[in-house]
């Protein structure tokens, strides 16, 4: 990897280097996947100390397993599975309720061809004074999100994971049929819109925020 930019390295290369003790490669692995692992942990709606425990344990498990990772290119999937297992272990340990995933309406199956869930949105660069407004808006949005039913919170958090999860992965994490992911996502978004207090078309869809 000498002379090569870390950002250009494949996951397999990074895993190989990290296995040999390369700290920079390890940090790059963490930085690329931290958001994903955090999304999976957050989707289980654990209290903060448990969420922190599940997050860090996932990385320690990875160090432990690094040298026998059979398919380094499947690292995302490995991390998702491991993070989920740690969350379930903590839920069991503290005897808490699991997010009510079974209550997710199976709905009617829809055809979801792609695995990429959401295109990158084209957003104009905000003017400096817009930053404060956006922050305020984000707080309102997150407040509303936290009033959603548990199953909607889990679904939306997983749906927006970065790097993204496939419908199949989301369905497995929530233990629901893959065909229910799309319809439930739409239902949850409508619910969120109601909590935000506006009619469906109140949101400026032209991107002129």
């Amino acid at each position: 990897m000498p002379g090569e930019r870390l950002a250009d390295c494949s996951i397999s290369d990074l895993v190989r280097e990290a296995t040999q003790g390369d700290q920079r490669a390890w940090r790059e692995i963490v930085d690329r996947h931290a958001g994903l692992v955090w999304s999976v942990v957050r989707s289980h709606r654990l209290p903060d100390p448990d969420a922190g425990d599940a997050f860090q344990t996932t990385w320690l498990r990875l160090v432990e397993s690094l040298h026998r990772l059979r398919q380094p290119d499947q690292l995302s999937a490995w991390l998702v599975t491991t993070a989920r297992r740690e969350c379930l272990r903590l839920i069991k340990r503290r005897d808490r309720e699991i997010p009510d995933a079974d209550a997710l309406d199976a709905g009617t199956a829809v055809h979801n061809g792609g695995t990429q869930l959401l295109g990158v949105s084209e957003r104009p660069v905000d003017a400096p004074d817009a930053a404060l407004l956006r922050r305020e808006r984000n707080h309102e949005l997150l407040d509303a999100y936290r009033r959603l039913p548990a199953r909607c919170q889990s679904l939306l958090r997983l749906y927006l994971a970065d790097p993204p999860l496939s419908y199949q992965e989301i369905a497995e994490l929530l233990d629901v049929p893959v065909g229910s992911v799309g319809p439930n996502r739409s239902r949850c978004l409508n619910h969120l819109r109601k909590l935000l207090g506006g009619p469906n078309d109140a949101h400026d869809v032209e991107g002129g925020r």
Binding site: A34, G35, V37, W38, S39, R42, G52, F55, V110, H111, N112, G113, G114, L117, L118, G119, S121, R123, R134, R135, R137, N138, H139, L141, L142, Y145, L156, R157, Y159, L160, D162, G182, R185, S186, L189, L192, R193, N200, D201, H203, D204, V205, G207
Partner: peptide
Amino acid sequence: MDDLTAADRALLADLRDAFQQLDPPP
């Protein structure tokens, strides 16, 4: 074929923003 409406996409983009800004990995 995804069935997202334009309003859905916009709301999802906003929600993603909110997560990134207010609840990133500590």
